[in-house]
Design a protein around this nucleic acid. Sequence first.
DNA 1: GTTACACTCTATAGTAACTATAGAGTCAAG
DNA 2: CTTGACTCTATAGTTACTATAGAGTGTAAC
Lengths: 138, 138
Amino acid sequence: MKIGELAKLSGCSIQTIRYYEKEGLISAPERTEGNFRVYNAVALEKLAFIKNCRALDLTLSEIKRLISLQHSPSTPCEAVNEMIDMHLLVVESRIEDLQNLHGDLRKLRLKCGNARSVDQCGILGELSPRPQRSSTRI
Amino acid sequence: MKIGELAKLSGCSIQTIRYYEKEGLISAPERTEGNFRVYNAVALEKLAFIKNCRALDLTLSEIKRLISLQHSPSTPCEAVNEMIDMHLLVVESRIEDLQNLHGDLRKLRLKCGNARSVDQCGILGELSPRPQRSSTRI
DNA sequence: GTTACACTCTATAGTAACTATAGAGTCAAG
DNA sequence: CTTGACTCTATAGTTACTATAGAGTGTAAC
């Protein structure tokens, strides 16, 4: 199959497939006489693997590492487990950050009712750096 | 003061300040004869405002919008409130996504104990696209 | 006066993981 | 033989910066 069909079957865009090839995540396929890429079912599987990993937000370099580990099947898989553990930590800290952010934004939102003008806006007042415009003023 | 001092006082890097100028978030300052930028306390305040906004993860274009709203102080501040509300929604959906991701990663992590080889690794098995390698096999 | 240095200037490239575009070529059907 | 759908490469754009090169400025010491 050509790249268009692979794109449809895999759910990756054509540009993404070419990008993965350039980045070394998938190997360069054979070409037709007219220089078109030709793929088989194996390529589809590799793309599906990458898609699964990307759905878990693993980075392309993590995925590359996983692929290279797959190529030496008898080595211990500790490295795989560690990578997932590290990734869990990253995701956890991102969630924490976002939750703090969310709290801050909600507090900020409460600073202003709807019907004011910009110069009286509690939100803009709160974002401005002068300390006397803090919560005591609302 | 010159850009280095402003950078120290504001906590933004020199490059970031020049970048904000290029992007139109702060106005281009006066220059010395030797072409060095000269700033005053107002510039510091503007940077502090931007920093507050960035701490809430508002995008530069959102901040630009806020700044332009500040310049017409008598208009109603609905737009400000809407922006914060939109931002809250975005943050909420990002949190939800990350929490789902976290659940998936934890499940994945449980697929593999420590002392296997790569070809038996439950994690790699799970990431691979063949359906028969699913949870029933572990 | 000059020299060392700390600072600043512009312009450019890099980051992550793509997406979008231009301009050219391939191929099958009508 | 031309139309249209597809593909090719190369390049630029996205976000919010960071890092670098190579040049110029300003000042303090010698």
